[in-house]
Design a protein around this nucleic acid. Structure first.
Lengths: 102, 102
DNA sequence: GCAATGCGGTTTGTATTGCAAACTAGTTTG
DNA sequence: CAAACTAGTTTGCAATACAAACCGCATTGC
C-alpha cells in the first residue's frame, strides 16, 4: 500500500466542513433555496446556517439574494458556477480516496 | 430531493480531519507503522503528525509505543479495535452520502 | 395604544482547532 | 568540544464552529 493518498491534504476545507457540504449538496440539486428550507433540510440552527452561508458567499460559492415575502424578509441562496465546480471537484477527490482505499 | 443527508452532521470529526483520515487509513492497512514512515507517507510535518497522533491516542483510536531502534527513539503506532471500528463507521457514512447524492 | 410574542435572520462570546515555528533531548560527525 | 543531525514535543496564534444573545419588524392579546 503505497498509493498516493496525500491528495486528501488538498481537500477544499470550505466544502469539507460537514454542515457546508450539506448546504452545498442541497443547493446543487435545488437550483435555489430559501433560508428556512435550508435550515430544515440541513438540520442547522439559524445562527449556524447564517454563518456558514456568509462564509460560502465570501468564497464566491453561493449567491445570496435578500427580498421580501409579503412583509417578511426572505433570503434566497443559489450555488454559483464556481461553487458548483468546487463541489464537483470535492466529490471527485473524496470518491477517488474511497475507491483507492475500498 | 428530500433524502436524509443530515447524517453528515454526525460524522466523527476526529476522523473527518483530512490529516487524521490519512493517518488512520494508513494504519488500517499497515498493522503497525513508525513515526517517520507515517510522516513520509502522509506528507505531514513532524509537529503536525505528533499533535494528530496525540489526539488519536487520547481518543483511544491508536496505541503508541515508544521504544528504541539502536540508540534512537522509535515511536510505533497501531490502530486499536476502537479506532478500526470508528474508521469503518466513518467510511460507511461517507460512502452512504456519496451514494445518495451520486 | 402598547406590552408580549413570533419571525427571519445576524452578531457576539468562547472554547477548540490546525498549523508553523521554536524547542528538547540525545547522537553522531568534524 | 562544538556543530549538525535525529526524532519527536511544545508553544503561539490565527481561524474555526457552535450556542446564545441580540435585532428590527409584524402580529396578537388586552
Amino acid at each position: 500500500m503505497s498509493d498516493d493518498l496525500r491528495g486528501l491534504n488538498d481537500l477544499d476545507r470550505l466544502i469539507h466542513e460537514p454542515a457546508r457540504l450539506l448546504i452545498v449538496t442541497i443547493l446543487s440539486t435545488a437550483a435555489s433555496a430559501d433560508f428556512l428550507f435550508l435550515q430544515r433540510e440541513a438540520g442547522l440552527t439559524r445562527g449556524n446556517l447564517s454563518a456558514h452561508l456568509s462564509k460560502l458567499e465570501e468564497a464566491g460559492y453561493v449567491k445570496i439574494e435578500k427580498t421580501f415575502k409579503g412583509k417578511l424578509p426572505l433570503t434566497v441562496c443559489k450555488l454559483t458556477a464556481k461553487g458548483q465546480k468546487a463541489y464537483v471537484a470535492y466529490r471527485q477527490q473524496m470518491q477517488s480516496f474511497m475507491d483507492k482505499t475500498g
